[in-house]
Computed example of a mutant assay.
Amino acid sequence: MAQAKPKRWSQRVAETSDAMDLEAGVFTLKDPRAIARSLKRSAERSKRRKAEPFRSAMSMLSYYINRAGRNLPRDQRQRLEAAKDELRKLYDRAPSKR
């Protein structure tokens, strides 16, 4: 029997792309710094990423935020946006101008 087709293209991308492997539940952590540290660890260990670790980690975080869209609760979105700033600090990158 044929494999079940993913309902959403984002599911297919997450399952089959060369995106890095993430720790389970990373985006549900309560501390933005813990989210950033986990993403950094995953990006630096991953053999499946194509870009440099910072870009890969930031891309995964942005991808999650964008895919959740309006369904993402405000407090969780704020935590994830704060995690972007923490990730920039961990990689000594300039903060964004919002």
Rank of each mutant, 00 (worst) to 15 (best):
K5H: 09
A51M: 10
R8T: 00
F54Y: 13
Y63K: 12
E15L: 14
P6I: 02
D31T: 08
E15A: 15
S17E: 02
Y63P: 00
Q3D: 14
R41W: 13
K47S: 08
R12Y: 13
D31A: 09
M60Q: 14
K47W: 08
S17N: 05
R12H: 13
M60D: 02
R33E: 10
E86A: 12
R74H: 12
D75S: 13
Q3T: 11
R88D: 09
A82I: 05
A24Y: 11
A36H: 02
R74N: 12
L61M: 09
D18H: 10
A14E: 14
D75C: 00
R41I: 05
R45Q: 12
Y64H: 15
P73W: 04
S42H: 09
A19C: 06
R79S: 08
R41H: 13
R55F: 14
R37Q: 15
R70Q: 10
K50Q: 10
R37K: 14
S56Y: 06
Q11P: 00
E15S: 14
S59F: 11
T28K: 15
Y64M: 09
E86L: 00
D21H: 14
Q3N: 11
S38W: 05
R41G: 08
R77C: 02
A14W: 09
A19F: 06
Y91M: 01
S42D: 15
M58V: 01
Q76P: 03
G25V: 10
V26D: 08
A82W: 05
L39E: 08
S10E: 06
P6H: 08
Y63I: 04
A94C: 01
K50C: 06
A82L: 03
K5P: 03
K30A: 15
D21Q: 15
A51K: 07
D75L: 10
R12M: 09
P73N: 00
I65T: 07
K89H: 08
D92A: 13
Y64E: 12
K97H: 11
D75G: 04
K84D: 10
Q78C: 08
A57Q: 03
A36G: 02
D31S: 13
P95H: 03
G69T: 07
Y63T: 07
R98P: 15
R79D: 01
E15M: 14
A51I: 03
R45I: 01
R37Y: 09
L39F: 07
L22T: 01
S10L: 09
D85P: 00
D18K: 07
R8E: 12
K30C: 05
K89P: 06
S10T: 05
R70L: 12
Y91R: 01
P73V: 00
I35M: 08
R49Q: 04
I65C: 12
R41Q: 12
R74Q: 13
S46P: 00
R67V: 13
A82N: 06
R88N: 07
T16Q: 12
Q78T: 11
L61I: 01
S62G: 13
D75M: 10
N71I: 09
R74K: 14
E81K: 11
D92C: 07
L87A: 04
